[in-house]
């Protein structure tokens, strides 16, 4: 585990308390709170513009917050003295648009951060990177450039790239939203396997059947607040809030 923080696995690995975030006058997050235990998979769903991406970006300090607290393994993220590198080793992120490095092959994409950021041995990194590409079912594509891969393959390289930093928590922001329906499945399978391996996952997704299947807990956001949450069975079949019902009615 990291440094000498008093965090232990029986405490939430990510703890979000009363988080407020504004862009200028516009308040995007209006007091959001929830906890995630190690190994849990949670899904955040909600209408476009409700602040899902913003929330997830605050967790690895890609965006800052105005009020409240976000703790990862007991460490406050929104602290001026935060060691950003330490945070980003713990928290991996996968984006909707893959954001691979187009001038690097799949293997080089996966190897770059461990080599350049962590300064690890090339031999070890390469072995691990090859194993990760195999794990996301991309054996044989090591030397392909992103431009030569399908969207689904690129997204799986992006997942492997993030895993190469050996994070404790993975953030997924609508990672299948830009994909063809046929390739959505291969990416979801990869995430499902990851979750089954015990990775803590926070997913923003519009794939309801997938959320129902993998999530331990679902959070529904609307206009910057969590309107309703619960385990998938109660959430999907027994929603209480009219906004949740309306949303689910449109989507399902």
């Amino acid at each position: 585990m990291s440094d000498n923080s008093p965090w232990t696995a029986d405490q939430p690995i990510v703890s979000i308390k009363n988080v407020r975030k504004s862009y200028g006058e516009f308040e995007v997050l209006k007091g959001v709170s929830f906890d995630i235990m190690k190994g849990d998979v949670i899904c955040i769903i909600g209408p476009s513009g409700s602040g899902k991406s913003t929330l997830i970006r605050c967790i690895n300090a890609l965006a800052d917050i105005q009020d409240g607290s976000i703790k990862v393994e007991g460490q406050e993220v929104h602290d001026a003295k935060l060691d950003k590198l330490a945070l980003r080793r713990k928290v991996g992120m996968v984006f909707q648009q893959y954001n691979l490095f187009p001038h690097k092959t799949a293997l080089q994409n996966v190897m770059m951060a461990p080599l350049k950021v962590l300064g690890q041995q090339k031999k070890d990194v390469e072995m691990r990177a090859r194993a990760l590409l195999k794990k996301v079912r991309l054996e044989g594509k090591e030397n392909a450039y992103p431009g030569e891969l399908s969207g689904g393959q690129q997204q799986r390289v992006a997942i492997a790239r993030s895993l190469a930093m050996q994070p404790d928590v993975m953030l997924f922001d609508e990672v299948t939203a830009a994909l063809d329906p046929e390739t959505v499945k291969e990416v979801l399978i990869t995430i499902k396997e990851l979750a089954a391996d015990g990775m803590t996952c926070i997913l923003v997704t519009h794939e309801m059947s997938f959320a129902r299947e993998v999530a331990d807990h679902i959070y529904f956001t609307d206009r910057g607040v969590i309107v309703e949450h619960g385990p998938p069975s109660t959430f999907f079949d027994n929603a209480q809030d009219p906004r949740t019902k309306a949303f689910l009615g449109q989507i399902l």
Partner: peptide, 8 residues
């Protein structure tokens, strides 16, 4: 941003 998220 992807670079940043990877700790660069």
């Amino acid at each position: 941003e992807a670079c940043e998220a990877l700790g660069m």
